[in-house]
Amino acid sequence: MKPQTMKAATAAKKLGVYLPATPPEFREREISRTELDELLAEPPAWLQALRAEGPHPRDVVARKLGVSNSGLARGGVTEALTTSEIKALLADPPAWLVSERATQAAVRAENARVKQRDAERARRSDDQAG
């Protein structure tokens, strides 16, 4: 039976790394599920370095900055950033980052409120049913 494979872009996403920064031998072929599992279990030096120093893909940059992917775009961040660039932004945040972090915090608070409300409704519904 032929092993299940994925495109390098898919494997990079699962590994949380920026595809163009990966070595050519990773980037230029399909990756088997077994190879991906091995990379996750015992990351080679290049993978450890990418995860620690970057450049990082958009979703990782957004998470590290505490904003959404859309917030990155609104802030004009279109390129992958390194860990040191992310730390520099956090140390001296530009106005767009302060604004986007506040927006993200408000979204999280609203999501928590809705989740709590729905849980209370479900509990009351269970109480009435039982």
Rank of each mutant, 00 (worst) to 15 (best):
R29W: 10
R29H: 13
E30H: 10
I31W: 06
I31E: 05
I31G: 06
I31L: 08
I31Y: 04
I31S: 08
S32E: 03
R33G: 00
R33C: 03
R33V: 10
R33S: 07
T34G: 10
T34K: 15
T34Q: 15
T34F: 14
E35C: 05
E35L: 04
E35A: 06
E35G: 05
L36V: 03
L36W: 05
L36D: 03
L36F: 05
D37E: 15
D37C: 10
D37S: 14
D37K: 15
D37M: 14
E38Q: 15
E38G: 09
E38I: 13
E38K: 15
E38D: 14
L39N: 07
L39M: 07
L39A: 07
L39Q: 07
L39H: 09
L39P: 04
L39C: 09
L40P: 00
L40A: 02
L40W: 00
L40V: 03
L40C: 04
L40E: 08
L40N: 06
A41V: 01
A41D: 09
E42I: 08
E42K: 12
P43D: 05
P43R: 05
P44G: 03
P44F: 01
P44W: 01
P44Y: 02
A45K: 10
A45I: 10
A45N: 05
W46K: 00
W46F: 06
W46T: 00
W46E: 03
Q48T: 14
Q48H: 07
Q48C: 10
Q48F: 02
Q48G: 06
A49I: 02
A49V: 04
A49R: 10
A49L: 01
A49W: 00
L50P: 08
L50M: 13
L50G: 08
R51A: 03
R51E: 02
A52E: 12
A52Y: 03
A52I: 06
A52S: 11
A52Q: 14
A52N: 06
E53H: 15
E53C: 13
G54K: 12
G54E: 11
G54H: 10
G54W: 12
G54V: 11
G54R: 11
P55D: 01
P55K: 02
P55I: 02
H56P: 12
H56W: 13
H56K: 11
H56A: 13
H56S: 11
P57I: 04
P57Q: 08
P57G: 03
R58S: 14
R58Y: 09
R58A: 15
R58C: 10
D59T: 11
D59G: 01
D59F: 13
D59A: 11
D59R: 13
D59K: 08
V60I: 04
V60E: 02
V60W: 00
V60H: 00
V60R: 02
V61C: 12
V61I: 12
